[in-house]
Computed example of a mutant assay.
Amino acid sequence: MSDLTTAAGDGNGRPGRGSLDELDGKIVALLQRDGRMPYREIGRQLGVSEGTVRHRANRMFSSGALTVVAIADPFRMGYRVLAFTLLKIAPEQQQHVIDTLCGWDEVTYVSSCTGRADIYAQLVCRDHAHLWDLLYQRLPQIGGVVTSETFMELKMHKVSYVYPMS
């Protein structure tokens, strides 16, 4: 079976069958630096064949362990406001709020968290009026939001989705 399980393993402290091995990790590391790097070049750098790289990359793509995407600079795309909001949610409304936020084009990231907030959401807006509309018109219409705390990002200093391979 070539399906990948999570790198964390089977839940009992054992590596999962088909989890990422050292070569997979090296392929991922190269694709994190350059998602358009040809398999031939990856194979050359790692000392394996292009076919081996293609097979392993395709296996990781089809299992969902790896996705290659383009990350655009929102400011260069015409957006003037980046913000994130911390939301405290009525427990019975958690999934409803998550589902609703995930459907909004302006929401680029949603996660459940612990601490003073239940949900973290990142927002990208054309301008302050757009942010105001999201926070004070659309968000209250969802229902279940008890409190919100919103922060505007003034400048991005690092954007990276490169995860260290340990």
Rank of each mutant, 00 (worst) to 15 (best):
T67W: 09
K158M: 05
L101S: 04
M156I: 15
F75S: 07
A72G: 01
E22W: 09
A70R: 14
S112A: 12
C125I: 08
V68P: 00
G43R: 06
C102Y: 11
R76Q: 14
E149H: 14
V81K: 03
Q94V: 14
G11R: 12
G13Y: 14
V110I: 11
M165D: 06
I71F: 09
F151R: 12
K158Y: 10
T147A: 13
L134E: 00
D10G: 06
H157W: 11
A117D: 01
G144T: 09
E41N: 08
L4N: 03
I71D: 00
G103K: 11
S148G: 07
Y120D: 02
A117F: 12
A70H: 15
R59W: 04
A121I: 06
D105C: 05
G103F: 08
G35W: 06
T67P: 00
A90M: 09
S19V: 13
A29I: 06
F75P: 00
Y163K: 14
L23H: 05
G144D: 04
R76N: 09
D34T: 09
R44F: 08
I142D: 01
L87P: 00
R56K: 13
Q32H: 10
Y120W: 12
S148E: 10
H130L: 08
E50Y: 09
V53L: 02
F151M: 14
G47R: 03
G16Y: 07
G103V: 10
V81M: 02
L66P: 01
G47S: 07
R36G: 09
S49A: 09
H96F: 07
R80Y: 04
